[in-house]
Computed example of a mutant assay.
Amino acid sequence: MIIIENDQIAPETCRNAVVAIGNYDGVHRGHQMLLSLAFREARALHAPFGVVTFEPHPRTLFRPNEPVFRITPPAMKAKLLGGCGADFMQILTFDRDLASKEAESFVREELVDRLGVCHVVTGYDFHFGKGRKGSPEMMRTLGKELGFGVTVVEQVTDDDGVAPFSSSSIRRELRQGEVSSANQQLGYRWTVLSRVVPGDQRGRTMGFPTVNIALENGCDPGEGIYAVRVRNGEKAWRGAGYIGKRPTFGKTDVVLEVYLLGFSGDLYGTELAVEFVEFIRPDQAFSDAEALTAQMQKDVQAIDAVLTTVEANDPIARFPLGKLQGEGRL
């Protein structure tokens, strides 16, 4: 997948494309339905399929003192969009200039002049331009005027047809440690994609050496122990994941540490994908390191059992890692 930054000129291979436009934080099942429709439209028109998205998250501009919990930071979002079949991703910098651009100017400059789109696919609630005055109805009108087709996708709900899929709902579930519920809405397992960084190496002295994964600013899922699967390319391990402040040792910063079952070696600087499978227990303080070690032994046994069951009967799609699975769907 080609990634086009804000000021880069789009290659000719990305022009006259079908584009899906939106923020797509989470690339959840609602997003996937929209992206699937755009994928099929592109194939029917023998056109490239692209995604127009925004960085940073708009809330970062309007509420700079409130870090945003990004379900899928840029690198993870790119992998998932590639997994949905996108040929390219156009990233528009969401700054004061873009936020103040009139809706019609946004369409003319960013979609028509920059990309020469032949068709736009957007959600029913997508608003754009200064004061969010641009609407799906305006997009349809401008499409007729400027010569591109428009598809507006209505709200996508769960299998019961009741609850709509939404990034806000998924963030809420993750904050509460309800990772299984969040995963059902995502259609894949929530994954942290980041690099291994140095830690305090206390786990080595307890018999549980961990890898320390850098977290994005604002990332705040429920603190506790998780059953995880960890990937590095084609390599994969079962893992005991910990998110928390390490209260037993008087720490205050939130970390992600993972004990890889059956692994020994050095992974410093390596990019890992940590896939969250199930919440095991909340974080807690222990009287001393020995009590914590005893609990960790129990946690690892429980996690091994959970992952054995999951791997025998995988209930939802495996993490795609940029591979197209079916017609534009994860």
Rank of each mutant, 00 (worst) to 15 (best):
V179S: 01
V179W: 01
S180K: 14
S181V: 15
S181A: 15
N183F: 00
N183A: 15
N183T: 03
N183V: 00
N183C: 14
Q184G: 13
Q184S: 12
Q185A: 14
Q185N: 13
L186T: 00
L186C: 12
L186G: 01
Y188W: 14
Y188I: 03
Y188P: 01
R189K: 08
W190V: 05
W190A: 07
W190G: 02
V192S: 04
V197L: 06
V197E: 05
V197G: 00
P198E: 11
D200P: 04
Q201F: 12
Q201S: 14
Q201W: 12
G203N: 12
T205M: 12
M206P: 06
M206N: 07
G207F: 09
G207R: 08
F208A: 08
F208S: 09
P209Q: 08
P209H: 07
T210L: 06
T210R: 07
T210D: 02
V211L: 06
V211I: 11
V211G: 04
N212G: 08
N212Q: 14
N212K: 12
I213L: 13
I213R: 01
A214G: 10
A214S: 12
L215K: 09
L215N: 07
E216Q: 11
N217P: 05
N217A: 10
N217C: 07
N217L: 09
N217S: 11
G218S: 06
G218I: 01
C219E: 03
D220W: 03
D220P: 03
P221N: 13
P221T: 04
G222D: 07
E223T: 15
I225E: 00
Y226K: 02
Y226S: 02
A227H: 05
A227E: 05
V228D: 01
V228K: 00
V228S: 03
R229D: 09
R229E: 15
R229T: 05
V230H: 00
R231E: 11
R231A: 11
N232Q: 15
N232P: 01
